[in-house]
C-alpha cells in the first residue's frame, strides 16, 4: 500500500485489480468530530421531538410512553450507528452531511462485522467518557483523575496515528475517508476566451518554455480558472510581468492584453511539457535543471 502526502492531505493508496493505483484522502479530525456532533444532535433532537409530541398529544398511556422512550434512548446509541452504516454503506446521517465515509482499510467490501465492531467501541470511546465528564462534580479525586486519563487516552489515539484511526477503527480494520466529490472543470486549453480586444499572436521560443515545470503550470491553471466566489480576482498584469521577466520574453505585451498573453503561454507551456513527458522527461518544477536533481 503506497503512502503519500499531497497538498497536506493524508492519502491512503489502493491497487485495484486493474493495476491503476487510486487513493482516498483520510478524513480530517474536524470533519469526523463535526459528523459525530451532528449525529448526536440529530438523534437526541429526535428523542426530544418524540417526547414533546407525545406529551402534547397525550396519545399514549404514561407506561407505554415510558417504555417507548426507554427503547428509543437505547436505540440511538450504538444500534443507530450500526444500522445507519449498514444501510448506507458506511455513512451515518452526520457523515453524509459532512461528506465522509467509512471504508474497509484493505479496500474491499465493508463487512457487517467491521461496522458492528467499530461502533461497539464507541461506547468506550465516546458515550461513557462523555457521561462521566457530565457527572464529574459528584466524583472523588480518583474518579476525576480516572475520567481525565480515559478521555485523554481516547483522544490521543486518533491524533497519534497516521490514518487517524480511533480504537474502534483499529479493532475493525476500517478507515474514515473523505467521500470523493468530482466536478469536471472545462479544459483551459479549449475554453479560454481571448480577452484581448485584438487577436494577437504570441510566439514562444523553446528557450522560453524551458524554464517552468509541472508545478508552475498547474499553479497558472488554478489562477486562470474563474476565481471562487468571494475571492479577489488575481492581478493578471503582475503575473504576466513576472512570467515575462523570468522567461526573458522579448516581444512587447501591451496593457490590456495580459490575460490573452497568459492564456497563450499556458497553452504553449502545457504542450511543451506534455511533449517532453512523452519522451520520459518529467519536469516537476522550475528546479528541474538545477544540479543534483
Amino acid at each position: 500500500m503506497s503512502r503519500r502526502v499531497r497538498d497536506r492531505k493524508r492519502l491512503e493508496g489502493y491497487l485495484p485489480p486493474e493495476g491503476v493505483p487510486i487513493s482516498f484522502s483520510i478524513a480530517s479530525i474536524g470533519a469526523r468530530f463535526g459528523a459525530q456532533v451532528l449525529d448526536i444532535a440529530l438523534t437526541y433532537g429526535f428523542i426530544i421531538l418524540l417526547v414533546y409530541a407525545m406529551v402534547t398529544t397525550g396519545a399514549l398511556p404514561i407506561e407505554a410512553m415510558f417504555a417507548l422512550i426507554m427503547l428509543c434512548v437505547f436505540l440511538i446509541r450504538v444500534p443507530y450507528y450500526i444500522l445507519a452504516e449498514l444501510v448506507w454503506n458506511g455513512r451515518t446521517v452526520g457523515k453524509r452531511i459532512v461528506g465522509i465515509r467509512v471504508i474497509n482499510a484493505e479496500g474491499r467490501r465493508l463487512t457487517p462485522h467491521q461496522i458492528v465492531a467499530r461502533n461497539l467501541m464507541k461506547e468506550v470511546e465516546l458515550f461513557t467518557p462523555v457521561t462521566m465528564v457530565f457527572t464529574v462534580d459528584a466524583m472523588s479525586g480518583l474518579g476525576v483523575l480516572l475520567t481525565l486519563v480515559w478521555v485523554l487516552a481516547v483522544l490521543i489515539v486518533p491524533l497519534a496515528n497516521r490514518r487517524r484511526q480511533r480504537l474502534g477503527d483499529m479493532v475493525a480494520g476500517t478507515i474514515v475517508v473523505d467521500n470523493p466529490r468530482n466536478v469536471l472543470l472545462p479544459d483551459l486549453a479549449l475554453s479560454l476566451p481571448a480577452q484581448g480586444s485584438v487577436p494577437h499572436v504570441f510566439d514562444f521560443l523553446p528557450a522560453h518554455l524551458d524554464i517552468y515545470g509541472r508545478f508552475e503550470l498547474q499553479t497558472l491553471e488554478k489562477v486562470l480558472r474563474d476565481p471562487v466566489r468571494g475571492e479577489e480576482p488575481p492581478d493578471f498584469g503582475q503575473i504576466s510581468r513576472t512570467i515575462i521577466r523570468k522567461i526573458g520574453y522579448a516581444d512587447p505585451v501591451r496593457p490590456g492584453q495580459e490575460r490573452a498573453f497568459l492564456n497563450a503561454f499556458y497553452r504553449a507551456q502545457r504542450e511543451h511539457l506534455e511533449t517532453l513527458r512523452l519522451f520520459g522527461n518529467r519536469r516537476e518544477d522550475k528546479f528541474h535543471s538545477a544540479p543534483g536533481s
Binding site: Y14, I103, R181, N182, D187, L188, E221, R270
Partner: peptide
C-alpha cells in the same frame, strides 16, 4: 502520463475512486 491538465486529473482520480468503491 500524458496530461498536465489538473482539472482532468483531479476529476478522473475522484471518479475512479468512487467507481472503485
Amino acid at each position: 502520463d500524458i496530461s498536465l491538465d489538473r482539472a482532468l486529473l483531479d476529476y478522473l482520480e475522484t471518479l475512479c475512486a468512487r467507481a472503485y468503491l
